[in-house]
Design a protein around this nucleic acid. Structure first.
Lengths: 234, 234
DNA sequence: GTGATCCTTCGCTTCGCACCGAACCATCCC
DNA sequence: GGGATGGTTCGGTGCGAAGCGAAGGATCAC
């Protein structure tokens, strides 16, 4: 039998403006402190503490204590895609009224953004397409895998991946994630996270105004073309 | 800029036990009257009326007046997959604790069920695979299309589809829908709905105890093998 | 027409919970 | 040690919403 009450609990944990604001702030995959989350939600620290406890109990976020700070992040990519699909229903209007014009209206968000811990938007999809075309990864339906050639390529570029990629690992090496705006898969999983981290470390991309939107740096344009043959102008 | 408040509105519209129960009852794609929904939610009709109005305002369901009855159904397949993914988070526990064992625990639900208005579960995925193998449909990422050969095949089997399948129609002819338990795409859209309706009309399948779970009838096993070459025993 | 059924609107009560002030732990810095 | 900073716990207040009873359309059956 299914569970209507559990459904209500999860939804109720999201359905409050302050908590929703916190979740949106966590959508980029970063871990934020309780105080920072209190600020983005415009509530006092003690109120935020209660909200965070509720969301942890609902398995939406996880908290980790570090010194006198407590960092919170989304419990998983599942939560991120859940929230994105909810925003699509709420923002884009009903599917029956306006079937077109899905995705964020902000052009910058459509061009490039982070989705949980990996790259999304046109940039994410282009990288994904390029890796498929190069035979580095294979994507079929809901499953994805990194080929031997892909492992070599990542090593060349300098992206570290686990040496023994076990199947059925706690976190898959490569997993397709449906892109919100492009409606096509981009690469998530450990490979997606590693690519994203690498892009930040080498300053291929940087956040626009601390948001989820990204811009590709001039140096990044060159590096992306050399590494994966991707054109990012246009 | 993104919209935390719209997110909260949608979630709040789901996050109440009575409303969640109604949505779960509508998950099979049928349209239920306000009175029936009041019963499944265990509230009085006047309370249910208020709940239904809220969910209509949140674009989760749509209401249609017929005589003195008012039928309500989910606003779209988007809503159905949203609710399924929410139940996955709430029911299966956090993704970090038990990464395996996704999908409904009920074996019958895994085998065959309805998802909104089309077939899902092993049965749905097998039909989808068979149609792809026969060249009747093509699925690529988030897009799907019915080939000329597929139209011929449907005509042979006796499944009616719109004669002029316009691209960008208000509802796509064929759309892949990620299967909850199988984690692979099955066929939704108008073709998926037509297939499901046909399977019910010809008594290929029937509901188990009025739930979303389906069983394939002996006659259905034969018909599915003849029409699409699908084995349903095992 | 009259009665019955289905649904909605109105008024009211009650309960939950978001919010903050104050006080209380934990940790870091000096 | 003392002080400062980040978080949490504890009461208490107030708003909002879920719930039902009663009354009011709307539609069908006769």
């Amino acid at each position: 039998m299914v569970t209507p009450n559990q459904l209500a609990e999860v939804a109720a944990a999201i359905g409050e403006p302050a908590r929703a604001a916190m979740l949106v702030a966590l959508m980029d995959g970063r871990a934020l402190t309780a105080g920072e989350l209190a600020e983005v939600a415009a509530v006092t620290p003690q109120t935020a503490s209660g909200h965070l406890a509720k969301m942890v109990a609902a398995h939406l976020i996880v908290g980790e204590k570090q010194g006198r700070h407590r960092y919170h992040r989304l419990a998983g990519a599942d939560v991120a895609v859940l929230i994105e699909s909810m925003m699509r229903i709420g923002g884009g209007g009903p599917a029956l009224r306006k079937p077109l014009r899905v995705g964020p209206r902000d052009a910058a968000l459509r061009a490039a953004r982070t989705c949980y811990d990996h790259l999304a938007g046109q940039l994410g999809v282009r990288i994904s397409d390029a890796l498929v075309a190069m035979g580095a990864v294979e994507i079929e339906g809901d499953n994805g895998l990194v080929t031997r050639r892909g492992l070599e390529l990542m090593a060349e570029v300098g992206i570290a991946l686990p040496v023994h990629p076990r199947p059925r690992a706690p976190r898959p090496l490569c997993r397709p994630c449906l892109d919100w705006s492009e409606r096509r898969p981009h690469i998530a999983g450990q490979l997606g996270a590693a690519l994203c981290a690498h892009a930040f470390e080498r300053a291929w991309v940087r956040r626009i105004g601390g948001s989820r939107a990204l811009e590709v740096t001039p140096h990044g344009k060159t590096a992306l073309r050399e590494a994966f043959g991707i054109r990012t102008d246009g």
